[in-house]
């Protein structure tokens, strides 16, 4: 099939304003959008810049706006996008070059929720026991790959860049609901602020944006409930 990629370009060394580049290529309908971007970079314009690594939706490098929706370029096939495809960097993050954005603030927020198991007292010689039911409670939120699609798709975050954002809350949820974790109190203090979990207005954009199919809004809801009742 023939597709036209309309890509928002910006090179900080040269451009004052972003501009649109158009590239017509021949491709297979089953090619990933990432394959199409690679085709442009490798054979048409080597300066096109974006992040990518695993190319099958597990590393989280290549989230971008594809026809207006946050998706991973490696997890969407051309046959689902039509012949004219518009590609822009994710919203809400500073654009550094073309489709590549500054994720430092996003990742700093992730790190701020103490995303690691907190326990007190000695560890057992073997594994801690955890029932399959307890394990299931946080299964969904272990899937996060920190691609940034949910936070970038969140209108509350567009309105208030200080909002900690859905991805950080998802990662807090992963520990709050882990029966082995003893850091609930300190983690809840971090989330129990105006820029924490309460900035969420339950708009559900994050659910649609998540390439790992995490039910982000439900996870945020569970954290809110835990804060209200001080119990997970």
């Amino acid at each position: 099939m023939q597709v036209t990629l309309k890509i928002k370009r910006f090179n900080p060394d040269k451009d004052k304003e972003p501009w649109w580049g158009e590239y017509r290529i021949d491709a297979e309908p089953t090619d990933r959008l990432l394959d199409a971007l690679n085709h442009v970079k490798w054979y048409l314009d080597g300066t096109l810049t974006y992040r990518r690594s695993c190319a099958h939706g597990v590393c989280g490098s290549d989230a971008m706006q594809i026809n207006g929706r946050n998706q991973l370029a490696c997890k969407v096939l051309l046959n689902s996008l039509g012949n004219n495809i518009t590609i822009e960097p994710m919203r809400g993050y500073r654009v550094i070059k073309d489709l590549l954005v500054d994720m430092d603030a996003f990742l700093a927020k992730y790190r701020s929720v103490k995303p690691y198991l907190i326990t007190h007292g000695p560890e057992p010689e073997k594994e801690r026991l955890q029932s399959p039911e307890d394990r299931e409670k946080f299964d969904d939120t272990t899937k996060c790959i920190l691609c940034g699609a949910c936070t970038s798709g969140c209108p509350s975050f567009w309105a208030d860049g200080e909002y900690i954002g859905p991805a950080a809350i998802v990662n807090a949820h992963r520990f709050l609901f882990d029966s082995r974790d003893e850091g609930g109190e300190e983690r809840m203090e971090i989330l129990n602020t105006l820029e924490g979990v309460w900035r969420c207005r339950t708009i559900f954009n994050c659910v649609e944006a998540c390439p790992r199919d995490i039910n982000v809004t439900r996870a945020i809801g569970e954290v809110k409930k835990a804060l209200l009742y001080r119990k997970v």
């Binding site: 690691y116 198991l117 594994e127 801690r128 026991l129 029932s131 399959p132 394990r135 299964d139 974790d181």
Partner: peptide
């Protein structure tokens, strides 16, 4: 496991 890795579990929790 002690660091929190969410292993799948047997019915006894191992």
């Amino acid at each position: 496991e002690h660091w929190g890795l969410p292993f799948s579990r047997t019915p006894e929790g191992k």
